[in-house]
Nucleic acid binder design. Sequence first.
DNA 1: AGGATATGCGTACACCGTAAGTGTGTCAAC
DNA 2: GTTGACACACTTACGGTGTACGCATATCCT
Lengths: 232, 232
Amino acid sequence: MVTTKSRERPGRERLTRERVIDAALTVMDAEGLDAVTMRRVAREVGVEAMSLYNHVEDKDDLLRGICDRVMGGFEFPEREGDWAERAKAGARAWRRLLQAHPDMMRLFAETDGPDPASPDSLRPTEFALSLIHEGGLSDRDTVQAFHAFGGYIQGFVMMEGGSLAERAKGGFGDEAAAIPADAFPVLAALGRYFAECDPDEQFEFGLDLMIRGIEAKVAADAVDGSAGSAAE
Amino acid sequence: MVTTKSRERPGRERLTRERVIDAALTVMDAEGLDAVTMRRVAREVGVEAMSLYNHVEDKDDLLRGICDRVMGGFEFPEREGDWAERAKAGARAWRRLLQAHPDMMRLFAETDGPDPASPDSLRPTEFALSLIHEGGLSDRDTVQAFHAFGGYIQGFVMMEGGSLAERAKGGFGDEAAAIPADAFPVLAALGRYFAECDPDEQFEFGLDLMIRGIEAKVAADAVDGSAGSAAE
DNA sequence: AGGATATGCGTACACCGTAAGTGTGTCAAC
DNA sequence: GTTGACACACTTACGGTGTACGCATATCCT
């Protein structure tokens, strides 16, 4: 063997960090986050639990590895259309990424999100920042807007997979509407719109809100002299 | 003892669902969500683990109980100032509630949020809906905006307690800036703003964006005839 | 050929949620 | 005062978890 790295074995495929993380992701997608145990993942790659620790610090490290792997799967949308349309496309790509694996948001919550400094996370971040920056915001406001968008998307997907999903199917739809109209008049009046909400439409609505907000802010700032991002 | 319900014992205080949930919340705030185990909570109220099951269906029920208890602690802000200011006050109250207990967002993620139909959750919801409705949106758009705001706030607090917190303290601040400027030019240029971000200011920025967006939408819709919420 | 090293395996331990069975203090009726 | 019913706390036990530790072996470098 002259090659420096590859030292293949005849019996079984060599275990690698990548294989471990792939298996963990597979298990998570197929059986949920709770099923991602060291023993279960080990079984998936045909190994005993303790062997995983040769490639993974501990379980937290494994979970962080899944986060990174998912971040690496970000699909950069085409940059076409006007700024608002490009920004929306970026946001949708972000949402799709988080939706792609059902328990992603739970995973995010339990690991404090992916390592922001990993290359796989850096690339989408760079993409988003440059996209937002093109809208005409100052450097400082670009970062603020980045966090605002990030928060919205993350929170929306979380709601989408959690309370919103259940609320839609009977939380206070028309049948289970045991809401006392005298105590909660607005709720009673608007209840039906909760039932018939379409998540995609909901997402677009909030997105539109934020885009409009940015456009309004850029327009307002342009009226002022030079200072840029005064507090309004 | 004539009273129908209370049959107090001399030895120890009678156990109740409320006491169990209070203890669980206490443990969560003091030692984190992971410390909330049946055994630990039982110890907190001076009892064995299995005794809790007389007052709680199972652990999930306990966690949902914590959610409800927290929701019940929502502090309704004063309704003063113009609409934008009142809306912001409402959003800040929501954020404060979620921030009040450090592991709240993780708890939300693991329980799919509080039961939306519980009275303790209904009251804040009613408050938020009526507040948003006053802004001039249609019934339908009010519900959409409610979800948009909810998503943003939830997501922001989640980021705040997770990645954002770590990113601020060195993720890519000035020292740990090993970011290759050629591969990530925007990121390198804007990195310092990540380091010096103030969460409160960040939150206000996004909030301002959404409020502006709503105002813009209301203004735009007012120009049209009657149809209401056309797609822009 | 002979270490050195990497990596997989087996065992063990403390902790988890909870099913099932046991004991005891408090009540209503006699 | 005695008795039976009942609510509720306790005990035990089971199968699961993450992982510390020690051992065996397969592969690489010299």
